[in-house]
Each structure stands twice: as C-alpha cells, then as structure tokens.
Design a protein around this nucleic acid. Structure first.
Lengths: 333, 333
DNA sequence: ATCGTTACCGCAATCGTTTGCGGGAACGAT
DNA sequence: ATCGTTCCCGCAAACGATTGCGGTAACGAT
C-alpha cells in the first residue's frame, strides 16, 4: 500500500541509500552489476522516486503554470494545446489556472505559482489588470513570466502577441477592397486591451479610406447574447454592407441577428472576423477570418518561457514577439 | 532574490525555527505577542512557505489531476470549468493532462500522477482504453480515481456518466414523436464506447417504433471534415426527414452538407443532437439538443473525488452516478 | 524552601532524496 | 614492503518545513 522508497531498496540489497540513488541515476561510481541489481529490485518493489523529495532537494518543481482568464470554447483551447505540446516535449508538467478576468484571482494565482515553486508562468492578463505591478513578486524571486495574447503597454516581460491594431486594420481594408462602403464593427468586452486596440485599427482603416469612423456603427458586447441583441438593435437603425468582428465569438452573435433580419451573407452583407480558425468552419456560411493561431501563440510563448528557464535566453532585455496573421477566405465575404 | 525561509525569520527574531513554524500556524503554545512579531517579520521578508517542503513533510501534494483525451472546443472546456470550480473551492490545485486518445500516453500520465503524488485523479478514458487494468497502480498506492464521461463496463472505480443508450433512445423517440419517419444517425469515432452506446440506443428506439434499424442511414466519422463529406455522400442516396447527431461536433459537420444540398432545417429535415449547450446557439438554425452539461459532469466528478480524498466517502463500494439529461428545444426540429 | 502549574519555547528527528567527501579494498608497480 | 591508483561504496549533511517530547522560567501556593 505505502509506496516504496529508496531505503526499502537499500535494505533489501544491503547497500546504503546513497548507493541506491547513484545506481538509479547511473552514476559512474557504481558498478554495472550493482546498478542492474538495484534496478531490478526497484522494479520489483514498483519503486517511483518521490518527486516532492527530489524537487525539494534539487529545488526545482518541473511545473509550469498557465494562467488564463477563463476556459471557454474560444481561442484558449487551442492555446492550451500548443502550450501542452511544447511543455510536455521539454519534460515539464502544466498547471492550468483561471483568473475569471478578476485581478484579485489573478494575484491569488500568482501566489500559488510562487508557493508551488513554479519554474515559469505563462500569463494572459485579466480584464482588470491594467498594469503588471502585481508580477513584481515573481520577478523578485526569479520566476520567469511570459505574457501572451493580452498585455499592457509598459510591460517589462517577454510577450507573444499579435498586432491587434494592424490586424484589425488589415481586415477592414480587405472589406473595403471587396467593395464595402458602410462597415460596422463588433467588439468584445470594452475593458480589455485587445478590444481597444482592434477598435483603433478599425477606425484608422476607415479614416484612411475616407470614411467617417465616428459614424460607423459600433458595438461592444461581453457575451454572445449581448452581441446578438445589440446586433439586432443595430440592424433596426443601420444597413451596413459589411461587419468587422473582432472575434469569432461576436461573429457567432451576429449571424443569427442577420438571419432574423433576413439579410443574406455575403450577398447583402459581408462578414469578416479574427479567429483561431475553428468556429468559422461551423458557421454557415463559413466565416472569412484572419487566422490568429492559438496553437502558434501557445507554442511560441511556451518555448520562450522554457528558453528563459533553461537560461538559454541570457539577455536581460525582454522581447515582444509579434506573430504574423494570414487571411483565410471562406464564404462570408 | 532567494526566497525567505523560516530560518531567516528565526534568525532575525532570535527564536528557533520550530517556534516560528508554530507561530505561523497559530499554535496555542506560542504567545500572542510573539505570533504578531513573527508574522510581521514574515510579511516584511515576503515569506512564503515552501510547499515542496511542507508537502514532503505532510506527505500531501494538494494536487488533483484531470486527464482527458484532448482539449478541443467541444465539451471538455465546460468540464474543466466545472472541475476547476469545485477543486479551487476545496483548496486544491488542478493539473490538466492530455492523453491524445492514446493508451500509451494515458499510462504515462498516470505515472506522472503517481510520481507527483497526486491526491486524486479525474479521468476520461482514451479511445484506446478498453479496460481499467492500467489504473491498478494508482489503486495500489491508494490514490482515488473518478472516471467520467467515458468508461468501460466492468469498471471498479467511481464514475460520473450519462446513460448514453437512454439519452440516444430519448432523442430518437422525440424525433419520431415530432413526426419523423426516416431517421439517419451520425456518430463520432466508432472506437469509443459512447459512440457505440448511443448507436445502440438509436437502433433500439427505431426498432421499438417499428422502423428497421438496420436500414437506417448511419455514419461514423472521427472529424468534422469526415462528417461533412460523409453526410454529403449520404444525401446523394437518401432523403432522411431527420438526423440524430451524437454530438454537436458531428452536427456541425452535417449542417453545411444539408445546406449544400439545399435542404432546409427544420422544414425539410429535423436535426437533434447531444451537446453541452454551447455550440447549438452558434448554429443556424439553433440546434435542438439533449443537454449534457459538461459543467455538471465536472462538478459532480470533482466533488466525488474530493469526498474520497477527504475520506468522507467511506464505503469501499464504488458508485456510478448517472446524470439526468433534459431536452432543450431550439430551432432545428 | 519546595512543589506544582502554567506558559513558552528549543532539540532533534523526520519526510525521501541527492551529493561532497572520505575511506577501504584490490591491484600493480617499484 | 610501501606507495599510488582505481574502483566502489558509505557517512552525514543538506533541502525547508513540522512536531513529539522535554525543559526552563515564572508564579503562586503550601
């Protein structure tokens, strides 16, 4: 019932625990024959090293934390997948924590990271986090942090982002090239930075094409339901010939509204979104989008973090990695 | 830079480490004034107990593992959410592992659970796991396991499931009540148990209503693309007046196929699915479904596990908790 | 002055490993 | 016979906390 320890092995064979330890770790001081014997007994006793003891001794934990606002079906599953892939390959274990978009819980989670001796932290800031001051605690004890997806301007940490402004600009420009003249914008929670940045890109693209950005119908909605309701309301007053959706989530709110108003996509109205490329294929018509690969974000961020942990990245300066985004042309434009 | 230990505090105040430890844990042997002082110094030094040491000493880890086949946008995000909710409330941390539907990786993950001294494991079996023999290792060392969603018949573990047969039966019966006479069935990976059970329920419901189940058009598809292709092919040969979809994922494959064939939902063809209730609202028309709440599954399974860990559940017998399922009537029937 | 309490606090073992250092045995060389 | 190597292996101290047991001081009571 109780798990075997190194001591059990040592007693059984009649050597010291240090010898057993060295044998199991293939230390050159130990003869091959003894190594063999030790390993056999270990197997027989179903011995597994107690990682709590090992980690305490080595003062490592082999753990990497991923803190995200919330696990929904949007975006983060792909990120987790990408992170897990890299983290697992490098021999770490992943711990997933959620901040529920609350600063308080984010701080709690960071404390957990500290307490559990995380070797590194991947963090997508909560909606309430307007700066990174609460990360100083980790910085002081030397736990590397990589921010991704959501960050703040004056960050002093490595980060993996996309250029939200640019991507939105690009999407809107694309709609204009396709002949759209009256473009509406749909955005998520107005408190999070990426909503704001994408909104700016939206406005700038309009302005650069001689369209009065302030007259463009605009919605900020924090949930699918809100978005659908707001879209329906919008359609009472305006008849846009195109929609820019900052995420596939808001696009999913828009579709039913258009349908209810008997507006056909893409004939009556074009739709474009930014998406990780899953949901767009479930929608009808399939949703043209700029492909913001969560998988890629996860991979790159995790790799960067692990490089930091291993000390491969020596420069003290932090880097901001901007991922490039491609457009996937489907049925909605 | 280095984190403060209990020793640092003891040196600073001039008491022993044991006293500091007791003071921090509000042991009655320590005077209130000293406690106050110790806590102040602890705060000043930004002291956090080293959980690796604490856990080694207490031989606990405070960790609960969740092993799932794969984090996709389907179902599991809700489960994770439910699990996290309970686990966090009870003061544990959650570790998410993926088996990629591979038995080998599932075994690897179980080893990780053992090595990291998990206090409990929540497991949704991989497609390749046809029994639970590989769980014996955990059983031997006394780590409780709760299976959920996917299990096997002769399981000797607590489990939280739905009655897949019954739910499918119920869904098909509903279609028949609504007038459907020619019902097709869409299923996922044919190797996983829930596909098989739901398929049986599908067939039985047909048979009980005097329909030849073996002539009913049936598809097993492991991905969205496969499902869409197979659906299109099916529509060349048959004109079902209703579809039973074992998951929202396959339903998402069906929709475009119906659309391409110019078949209208629900007028020309009804569709019903089993779903956790997210995706159905993004589809057009919204998808009528039997609501298999991932949130609930996660909560119940996690609570059961924690009861086991805490020893609240004393009975040696394992229990199988079957969650009830309600129907959500939306636009597709 | 002695004894008994009560209130505090320290010693040292412990959890399971790792690892620096030292030491014995065997063996060959001188 | 002595010395030097080489090859193995054990002792004991860490890692950072918890905790049973014992000990000391203060104090009042007798």
């Amino acid at each position: 019932m109780k798990r075997a320890t190194i001591k059990d092995i040592s007693l059984q064979i009649g050597v010291s625990t240090s010898t057993v330890s060295r044998a199991l770790n293939d230390h050159p001081d130990i003869s091959d024959s003894l190594k063999e014997q030790v390993k056999q007994v270990a197997k027989a006793l179903n011995y597994h090293p107690n990682l709590m003891a090992v980690n305490l001794r080595r003062s490592r934990s082999n753990l990497i934390a991923l803190i995200i606002p919330e696990i929904t079906m949007f975006f983060f599953p792909s990120v987790i997948k990408g992170v897990e892939e890299v983290v697992h390959r490098e021999g770490f274990q992943l711990l997933v924590l959620q901040s529920q978009d609350s600063l308080e819980r984010e701080i709690q989670n960071l404390r957990v990271c500290h307490d559990h001796s995380m070797e590194g932290v991947l963090l997508s800031l909560s909606a309430e986090s307007s700066d990174v001051n609460h990360l100083s605690e980790l910085k002081e004890v030397g736990i590397p942090v990589v921010l991704f997806d959501k960050s703040v301007v004056q960050s002093t940490f490595d980060q993996v982002l996309i250029n939200d402004f640019e991507v939105a600009y690009q999407a809107v420009t694309y709609l204009i090239e396709k002949g759209a003249k009256n473009i509406a914008g749909l955005f998520g929670n107005r408190n999070i930075s990426i909503s704001q940045e994408r909104h700016k890109g939206f406005q700038q693209a309009l302005a650069d094409n001689g369209i009065d950005a302030y007259k463009a119908p605009t919605i900020f909605a924090s949930s699918l339901q809100q978005c659908q309701a707001a879209s329906s309301a919008l359609l009472q007053r305006h008849k846009p010939d195109a929609f820019f959706c900052m995420s596939d989530e808001v696009a999913a709110g828009l579709y039913p509204a258009l349908n209810a108003a008997n507006i056909r996509i893409p004939n009556d109205c074009k739709v474009i979104a930014i998406s990780d490329g899953n949901l767009p294929y479930f929608m009808q018509p399939t949703l043209t989008h700029l492909h913001h690969s969560g998988l890629e974000v996860g991979r790159v961020a995790a790799q960067r973090l692990i490089d930091r942990i291993k000390g491969i990245v020596k420069e003290p300066e932090v880097t901001t990695k901007i991922l490039s985004i491609g457009i996937v042309e489907l049925g909605s434009v």
